[in-house]
Simulated scan of single mutants.
Amino acid sequence: MRLATLRLDGTTAPALVSDATATVIEGYSDLSELLTAPNWKTLAEQASGRTIDLADADYAPVVPNPGKIICVGLNYATHIAEMGRELPEFPTLFSKFKEALTGPYDDVIVPAYAAAELDWEAELAVVIGTPAYQVSEADAADYIAGYSVINDYTMRDYQYRTLQWDQGKTFEKTSGFGPFLVTDYTLGTRIETRLDGRLMQSATTDDLVFTPAKLIDYISHILTLQPGDVIITGTTGGVGHARKPPRYILNGETVEISIEGIGTVRNTTIVK
């Protein structure tokens, strides 16, 4: 099943997506609200509201109001190697805030003072569907609503101003997120980034050091993961900052991030 949050008539609505159309799931403002309903999956499957042609769809961030966005750094073996680090024993966690999210096809507007070292990070996002506290790795799949695509868009100069990364990871409306929440997904498909059509990152999602199940186990032993919370699982090798010389996103360039079996986000950077 594929779900989305669509912009409609000045507001938003969750929708069930088929090959060519989306059907509104009535009574809820977006997927964040829908996922708080214990029977959200049944409500989605039985969607019977307004029908939207996908060619005319305007996608909001797929889960626009998560209570928590927990990011994982250094979680692909290829990326760890290019950064000159050893495989970690435990996940590296940091936060992104919901204000950083933007639609999967929206322009990313970057203030000129933050535009020196703009970088892409293709990432698999995991969305929680059931409250999860002290969940084992073996049971973690039962707590996942679905999977999506996100660009953990990064201001590297801000990121490395201190030992804490958050400040470079959560600039306003910079992280394209969506377009779909896919409820059934198996690790191992291709994850790629293209910058103005040029391939920059390419790997498979089974290169993750800590899988979604392991991350849910680890994080849920710290705090309760709530429906609609998002875990961003890390990026693979090929980021611009690690290149020699570094290659950053320039004004007017488009970053496209795809995960086979889930979807694609495509955002053009505008520096103002």
Results as ranks from 00 to 15, higher is better:
residue 113 Y to D: 08
residue 122 A to C: 09
residue 141 A to D: 11
residue 145 A to Q: 06
residue 139 D to H: 10
residue 109 I to M: 06
residue 135 V to R: 12
residue 115 A to N: 03
residue 111 P to I: 05
residue 114 A to R: 14
residue 146 G to R: 03
residue 122 A to I: 03
residue 132 A to K: 04
residue 120 W to T: 05
residue 142 D to E: 15
residue 107 D to C: 01
residue 127 V to Y: 06
residue 108 V to R: 11
residue 116 A to N: 12
residue 128 I to W: 05
residue 136 S to Y: 02
residue 124 L to D: 13
residue 151 N to T: 04
residue 119 D to H: 05
residue 105 Y to A: 09
residue 138 A to M: 06
residue 125 A to T: 10
residue 138 A to D: 13
residue 125 A to H: 05
residue 128 I to A: 07
residue 138 A to L: 07
residue 139 D to A: 13
residue 124 L to E: 10
residue 133 Y to N: 13
residue 141 A to G: 00
residue 138 A to E: 15
residue 137 E to G: 00
residue 125 A to R: 01
residue 137 E to V: 00
residue 126 V to C: 09
residue 135 V to S: 13
residue 120 W to F: 10
residue 119 D to T: 05
residue 119 D to V: 10
residue 152 D to V: 11
residue 125 A to F: 05
residue 108 V to Y: 03
residue 129 G to W: 09
residue 132 A to V: 06
residue 126 V to E: 02
residue 109 I to A: 00
residue 115 A to P: 03
residue 139 D to Q: 13
residue 116 A to D: 13
residue 140 A to P: 03
residue 114 A to E: 11
residue 119 D to Q: 06
residue 112 A to Y: 01
residue 125 A to S: 14
residue 131 P to G: 12
residue 139 D to N: 14
residue 103 G to L: 07
residue 121 E to K: 14
residue 111 P to F: 09
residue 150 I to P: 02
residue 141 A to W: 08
residue 134 Q to N: 15
residue 124 L to R: 11
residue 135 V to A: 15
residue 103 G to W: 03
residue 137 E to Q: 13
residue 146 G to Q: 03
residue 126 V to H: 06
residue 108 V to T: 14
residue 116 A to I: 00
residue 128 I to C: 10
residue 135 V to Y: 12
residue 126 V to F: 09
residue 140 A to R: 09
residue 129 G to A: 05
residue 115 A to S: 15
residue 148 S to H: 06
residue 121 E to Q: 12
residue 120 W to H: 10
residue 119 D to K: 03
residue 133 Y to V: 08
residue 103 G to I: 04
residue 142 D to L: 11
residue 151 N to A: 09
residue 131 P to F: 01
residue 103 G to S: 10
residue 130 T to P: 02
residue 134 Q to S: 11
residue 130 T to A: 13
residue 110 V to K: 09
residue 118 L to Y: 04
residue 122 A to P: 00
residue 146 G to N: 06
residue 145 A to V: 12
residue 110 V to N: 02
residue 114 A to W: 11
residue 112 A to K: 14
residue 136 S to M: 04
residue 105 Y to T: 07
residue 128 I to V: 13
residue 108 V to P: 03
residue 123 E to W: 06
residue 137 E to R: 11
residue 147 Y to C: 07
residue 129 G to I: 07
